[in-house]
Structures are given as C-alpha cells and as structure tokens.
Amino acid sequence: MTEGWRLCPAKVNLYLKVLARREDGYHDLVTVMQPLTLADELRLTPGQGLSLECRHPEVPSGPRNLVWRAAEAFGAATGQVPQVHLELVKKIPVAAGLGGGSSDAAGTLLALNDRAGTPLSAEKLHELAAALGADVPFFLQRSPAVGRGIGTVLSPLDLPPYWYVLLNPGLAISTAWVYRNLDLKALAQTGAPLPAAWDGDHPEAWVANDLETVTLSRYPELRELLGELALAGARAQGMSGSGPTLFGLFLEAEAARAAARRLRQNFSGWITVTRGLTQAEGEATGRVKDEWSENF
C-alpha cells in the first residue's frame, strides 16, 4: 500500500551564462531555471531497510542512483536509515538536460523529511542537496529561480506560466565534454549578455544559453530544429542545459499544441507539450499534477 508520493518536476534553463572556470573544476554561472509540469513520480511504501525500484532500463536501482544516495544522505543526517521502499516512475527522459535525476534526488529528500516529521531544516536540506549535485538544491523549492555560483545560490523569480514544446532527438551528449570545450575568452566577447531584468512579457529579449556554442557546433541538426521551432511560432527557443533537449516557448497552450503537431510531421524523436510551474504553485505544494504535460 502506497504511504506517500511526490512529483519530481523537470526543468528548462531559459538562460545560462558561463562566467569563469573555477579551481575545483566547476564553473561560475548565471542561469534562469524553470520547473515544469512534466514530472517523474516517487512513491513511498513501508519497507525493511532501504530499497529502490525503477523499471526504466537506463536507470539503476541501487547506490548509483541519486535517489538512493539522497536517501542515504538523509539517513546519515538524521541518524536513522529510512525504513522505506522507494519506487521511481520515470517520465522525464534520461540524460536530456532536463534535470530529472537531480529532481528525483531533491524529491527524495523532501519526501523522507516530511515522512519523518521534518527533522531537517530547509538550510540542512539545501546542504545535503548541494553535496549531491549542483542542480539538486533548485528542485527543493520547485519554482522559477535565478541560480548563481555553480547554480546553488538561488533567488526566486516570478515568471508567467509559459507553455513549452520540448524536443529530444535522442543524442547522447556529455555535459563534461561540453564544459571542457567552452571557449571562455570568446564567450566574454560574444556570449549571452546579462540582462538588467528578466522581463516576463518579453522572454525573447533574454532567453539564451552559452553552452549552445559547443553543442550546436557539434550537432548542427539541433540548430535546424531550433529554426523549426521558430517557424512553428515559438516566442523564444533554446537548448536546456548542455542538451540535447530543445524548447520552444509559447504564451498559450493551443499554440504550443499546434506547433507540436506541425513538428511531429517531420520529427521522429520525443515531443512533449508542458507548462511552467509558477512561484505560487511551487510554494503551495509538491504535488502539482502533471495533467498539463502531453506527448505527441
């Protein structure tokens, strides 16, 4: 019998500017991250010790999974191994630039903390999340944010509930490879400008991603798909993270659905229409249903 559940939303990077390479190998950056109604589902049932089940063929069910590592980190912080069976139902594509694994880890921390009566503070959860990965702390708050540093210094951002067409052609792109091949000197001259404000009425003025300089050069077919999104009526379009997922931003649901139907005629990869979660939704609940995500 299911004891609890939590939705773990995907995200898109609407803006990503790389500032500098750090001595620890990470990069300082500025990014705007938008959580989506597209989400994995985490189910919890009482168990003997810790166990994890995931039927996705590309996702491990043991210690190599961030969900498992998050549960272990929670147990170490509280002094008690969670007596729980976790079932992860994947709907977010794997290794797609959509933050699925990071979101699953954050959802695990939140779900276990709720289940245990909230023994850990928000600050402690943030600490545990940051140790698991740079994107994980963002998913603790589940609402749009500007990330700085390596992405763990977060400021809330109020954005309209844009609609998104997501395209994933199934390319395998290494995030580490993308960052290794960044030309930071060139980006200082030609990279995404840092806007004075994030104007929600005119996202086309600031949506940008420095990582496109590497990924699109290696995979020109992605550049062609961005052009198709523009022709389909997207208000703005770009790449999420290091790719390969691309997004087109739309102001209304039907415009996004019409674009997805048009794109499906010549695109054989994964296409989904989804909506951005607002700040109010993120603050209200971790269980916003994903009825506003639709595959095409």
Results as ranks from 00 to 15, higher is better:
residue 226 L to H: 00
residue 276 G to K: 08
residue 93 P to S: 11
residue 18 V to P: 07
residue 120 L to H: 10
residue 117 G to F: 09
residue 271 I to M: 04
residue 153 V to I: 11
residue 211 L to Q: 13
residue 218 R to N: 03
residue 88 L to T: 12
residue 21 R to V: 00
residue 277 L to R: 14
residue 213 T to G: 00
residue 209 N to C: 08
residue 158 D to C: 06
residue 234 A to N: 07
residue 51 S to A: 13
residue 218 R to V: 15
residue 108 T to P: 00
residue 181 N to D: 13
residue 80 Q to E: 13
residue 149 G to F: 10
residue 21 R to M: 00
residue 110 L to A: 12
residue 196 A to N: 09
residue 29 L to C: 03
residue 107 G to Q: 02
residue 241 G to N: 04
residue 291 E to N: 10
residue 254 E to W: 06
residue 47 G to I: 01
residue 149 G to T: 08
residue 191 G to I: 05
residue 187 L to Q: 12
residue 186 A to K: 15
residue 201 D to A: 15
residue 107 G to L: 07
residue 211 L to K: 05
residue 112 L to C: 06
residue 195 P to D: 09
residue 213 T to F: 06
residue 49 G to A: 07
residue 89 V to H: 12
residue 277 L to T: 06
residue 128 L to P: 09
residue 289 K to R: 11
residue 205 A to M: 01
residue 14 L to I: 01
residue 101 G to C: 10
residue 79 G to F: 07
residue 226 L to E: 11
residue 81 V to T: 15
residue 24 D to N: 15
residue 148 R to I: 02
residue 105 A to K: 06
residue 262 R to F: 00
residue 130 A to P: 03
residue 255 A to G: 12
residue 211 L to C: 14
residue 54 C to K: 09
residue 194 L to E: 09
residue 160 P to L: 11
residue 197 A to Y: 04
residue 217 S to R: 15
residue 155 S to C: 05
residue 238 G to Y: 02
residue 223 R to C: 00
residue 280 A to P: 01
residue 30 V to L: 14
residue 148 R to D: 03
residue 267 F to L: 11
